[in-house]
Simulated scan of single mutants.
Amino acid sequence: MELLHLRYFLAVAQELNFSTAARKLHMAASPLSRRIKDLENEVGHRLFDRDTHHVRLTAAGNALLPIARGVLEQVDSIRWRLDETARPERTTLLLGVPTGVHPDLRERMGAFAERVGERFEIKRWPGGTDRLVEAVCDGRLALSLARLPVGADPALEQLPVMSERLGAVVPRDRFEGRESVALAELVELAYAGSPTAVTNAYFRGLDQQLAELGIKKRIELGSATFEGISEIVSSGLAFSISMLDSRSPVQNYRLDNVAILPFFDFHPRLETGLIWRKDRANGGDLQEVVAVAREVFAVPLHS
């Protein structure tokens, strides 16, 4: 019995119309009819009752239908079953991800995971930059996104992947109608640092820079969240600094009386890099992965 005969039978059984089934099979109706008769002769049973207006499955046809489907499903699955058998076992790699990663960068991460997906399964691991860098150093993470700078550890290599413009998070009612703000206008407000400031070298440096530029007041919020920062700013007690792009996920925590304005006399930017251990990339277990990462993240993003 030929598999093609079963495919012809299945097409007619699904359509219950020889002309429609023939078009689906890209053939004429008369040769299809002959192939069905050949199959009926081979199995020794009439499979269809047909007249000029109707086509119906016989009892034998109804019995053959699930058998034909099962046989064809098994045959059609041969290729992917062999591919699965021949495919090398995938290795799981952990990729560190800090808070507030821009959606464009997340899209690049997805493209990277897809590129290496045949050999490696990329799992994302959240955390503050300092902890993520530490985890890369001791081998718990294969790679990590990190807010730069991350120090000058000679064991690490870093690739710049994104630069984001920062703005002032201010009480909206105090700056109504404004399109930008000067740093000097914020001296009466306290600076409320980022929730990740204690684990982020960039924001620690930014705090020091603000002090040198005349911003002396501080509000210590400990383990406050982005939403907590927004509450303090909304009350009119403080300002903060955050990503200016409206698509940044930290914008989701902005309350009604909070606005984010660009500075016109101060130009802070948050740089993000991808880091890994040199020894694992140069002839090590991450050589292939890092080579792909260099291609996917070759051109840094800007917002």
Rank of each mutant, 00 (worst) to 15 (best):
L3T: 11
L4T: 11
H5R: 14
L6F: 06
R7H: 05
A13W: 04
A13G: 07
E15T: 12
L16N: 05
N17M: 10
T20I: 14
A22T: 09
A22W: 12
R23M: 14
K24S: 15
S30K: 02
L32W: 06
K37L: 05
D38H: 11
G44S: 03
R46Q: 14
H54N: 10
T58F: 00
N62V: 03
A63P: 01
G70A: 15
W80A: 12
L82V: 15
A86E: 14
R87T: 15
L93D: 01
L95P: 09
V97N: 06
V101P: 05
D104Q: 08
R106E: 13
R106N: 13
M109I: 15
A113N: 08
E118V: 12
F120A: 08
E121Y: 03
K123C: 09
D130S: 08
E134G: 07
V136W: 10
R140I: 05
A146D: 05
L156G: 03
M162Q: 13
L166E: 15
G167V: 00
V169N: 00
D173H: 12
R178P: 01
V181H: 01
L186Y: 07
A190T: 06
T199G: 14
R204Q: 15
L206I: 08
D207E: 06
Q209E: 15
L213W: 10
G214W: 08
I219E: 10
A224V: 08
T225H: 07
E231F: 00
S235D: 03
A238W: 06
I241W: 06
I241T: 10
S248Y: 00
V258R: 02
D265R: 00
H267P: 00
G273E: 03
L274Y: 13
R277H: 04
K278F: 02
R280G: 04
V289A: 05
V290G: 10
V290D: 05
A291D: 08
A293R: 14
A293N: 13
R294H: 11
R294L: 07
E295A: 09
V296K: 12
F297V: 04
P300R: 02
S303H: 02
